[in-house]
């Protein structure tokens, strides 16, 4: 399923996916519609643009993540939307790719996202690392998630543009281990985000009663 408000992009992405052998079950241009349609067609993977006319892409990602089972979400977004990208990823998106990425990179990202892997661009690694450091700098860092030394090391290398293969070589690890480290950093952040949301909801609920 493709969600993008720009018709040229929407069609282009859908065509690329179809040509690569994926079945595009829906292509929509609005957030609410996307959530509705996703509930009906149950896509395995949603390619999501963050700039939508009605709902923000972040909110769409959040609502999609609430579905059972949740579809995998690959954020395909323009550069310069760091805050939104980070929020979308915390809300459950498992990958982020710039719109300027080549078709090969895009299809590769789709394949890996569909396979359950996190797709980390250097940009996303920088954002995630920054988020962990922000959390660690808070007054009560003990309650937040934190990275192991190895995970930090791996994330920094991803942010510097090294491929998983290069990282594996440099740290003398297997490709799969690198992939797991990256995946873990994201899972911990998403878990923390969900816990925070629940805590927030409980506080609100207690206040109201």
């Amino acid at each position: 399923m493709v969600v993008d408000d720009h018709p040229m992009w929407r069609d282009g992405v859908a065509r690329d996916l179809a040509e690569a052998g994926y079945e595009v079950v829906a292509a929509v241009g609005e957030g609410r519609q996307a959530v509705r349609v996703a509930a009906a067609v149950r896509p395995e993977l949603v390619v999501l643009d963050l700039q939508l006319p009605d709902l923000s892409g972040v909110e769409v990602a959040r609502r999609l993540a609430a579905a059972e089972p949740p579809p995998r979400v690959l954020v395909l977004s323009a550069s310069g939307e760091q805050d939104d990208v980070l929020e979308a990823v915390k809300a459950g998106a498992s990958g982020y790719l710039l719109k300027s990425a080549s078709r090969e990179d895009f299809l590769d990202a789709v394949r890996r996202t569909a396979g359950g892997d996190a797709v980390f661009t250097p940009g996303l690694a920088g954002l995630v690392l920054g988020e962990y450091r922000r959390l660690a700098a808070r007054p009560a860092p003990a309650t937040g998630p934190h990275l192991t030394e190895r995970e930090t090391e791996v994330l920094r290398l991803v942010a510097k543009g090294l491929s998983y293969k290069q990282i594996a070589e440099r740290l003398v690890l297997s490709h799969r281990t690198v992939q797991n480290h990256v995946q873990n950093t994201l899972s911990k952040l998403q878990l923390h985000n969900r816990v925070e949301l629940v805590r927030y909801a409980i506080e609100r609920g207690l206040d109201e009663s």
Partner: peptide, 16 residues
């Protein structure tokens, strides 16, 4: 730094 970003230069920064 983002001013250096281009087709060949990838710039990664935190959200803060």
């Amino acid at each position: 730094l983002q001013g250096y970003g281009s087709g060949t230069v990838t710039v990664s920064v935190p959200a803060t």
